[in-house]
Write a protein that binds this DNA or RNA. Structure first.
Length: 295
RNA sequence: GGGUAGGUAGCGAAGCGGUCAAACGCAGGUGACUGUAAAUCACCCGGCUCUAUGCCUUCAGAGGUUCGAAUCCUCUCCUGCCCA
């Protein structure tokens, strides 16, 4: 774990000890983050801020593995933030979360408690801890729809003309990145350079990870339990309430595969096996991300 | 027993005389990440190794034709379907 209390190596005071203390519990899915966070919160007078790009939405409680909260947002007596605060019909972005979460952290600190960030969304945690400055350009839906029709090489050419500097660093075969870069360049001329990253808080990192076999067991067991508790019905309800299959597909994992099952594009068995595999693949991606945090 | 379609890398599936260690998909491995991030994307994926316009061993098995065979011929084994 990093000890951020010490001044940086060049002797300056930039690693300032004045930073506020926070605890981050992150790691692969199904490793028991939520429970650990609550346990820590009890011990250290904390409040939990969920950093989870799917739990942020209302609905899909089983699918996203939310902890059961009371009306007042308590679980085991510990206050939780960042859960069920947005409509699933629209995308809630990192930048939005960043603004929201910053206030929540301040609020928790002001109340004399310790903020405990808990979740598995790498970019979201990153954005909070390092205060990533996302270009202040809102998603432009009309432009995105237009650009979505172009091939990646066409998008790349377009970006090269608009912003050759960013074009050098983007992943030229990643449509999402290309579109966003063009979106920014179109709005403000060019994509701002990323600044050097420094943690904004005195962070105590807790990075959870499991061996492959243990993870597989946990995921399997948890998935069976979720289905038994009525996950399929839960997603069907979301769809009935107006969340399109397209949207559910984009939400991924349990949302995506349950949607496919509901659309009869997968058999019951395929639904379970494919979903389980996808969860394991996701866990691996998370692990890749959190390795950066682990040291 | 007769007929017929097949047996290709972990699985599925192309290839049907040379440019084939063999397209493609899946599974698997590693990684990336500037407002979709549970998303999206890249690389590797027979073996060896100096990771290469390198070497070795492969396309059910055994023979054969040919300068050259996963691709043609013969026989054997196995599988699906049809007729008995």
């Amino acid at each position: 774990m990093k000890d951020l209390n010490h001044p940086s190596k060049d002797g300056s005071l930039k690693g300032s000890p004045l930073k506020q203390k926070i605890i981050v519990v992150c790691g692969q899915t199904a490793t028991g983050k939520s429970d650990l966070a609550v346990e820590i919160a009890k011990k250290y007078n904390g409040a939990v801020l969920s950093v989870d790009s799917r739990q942020i939405y209302r609905g899909g409680d089983l699918a996203s593995g939310k902890v059961p909260l009371t009306n007042r947002g308590l679980y085991e007596g510990i206050e939780h933030f960042g859960v069920s605060i947005a409509s699933m019909k629209r995308t809630y972005t990192v930048a939005q979360f960043q603004r929201y979460a910053k206030k929540i952290i301040e609020k928790i600190l002001a109340s004399g408690r310790t903020p405990i960030l808990c979740g598995g969304s790498g970019l979201w945690i990153d954005a909070l801890v390092y205060g990533t400055e996302f270009p202040k350009v809102k998603p432009n839906k009309a432009l995105r729809v237009k650009l979505a029709k172009l091939s990646t090489s066409e998008l790349f050419d377009k970006l090269t003309k608009l912003d050759p500097v960013r074009a050098k660093t983007v992943d030229r075969s990643n449509p999402f990145r290309l579109i966003r870069a063009i979106e920014i360049a179109t709005a403000i001329g060019k994509v701002p350079r990323v600044k050097t990253r420094k943690p904004m808080y005195d962070v105590k990192w807790i990075v959870l990870s499991l061996s492959k076999t243990d993870l597989e067991q946990k995921v399997s067991k948890r998935l069976t339990a979720r289905i038994k508790k009525g996950m399929v019905a839960e997603i069907r309800k979301l769809h009935d309430q107006g969340v399109s299959h397209k949207r559910l597909m984009a939400l991924g994992l349990e949302f995506k595969f349950t949607s496919l099952f509901l659309q009869k594009k997968l058999s019951r068995t395929e639904f379970e096996t494919h979903l389980k595999k996808a969860i394991l693949q996701y866990a691996k991606r998370q692990d890749t991300w959190f390795k950066k945090f682990a040291k």
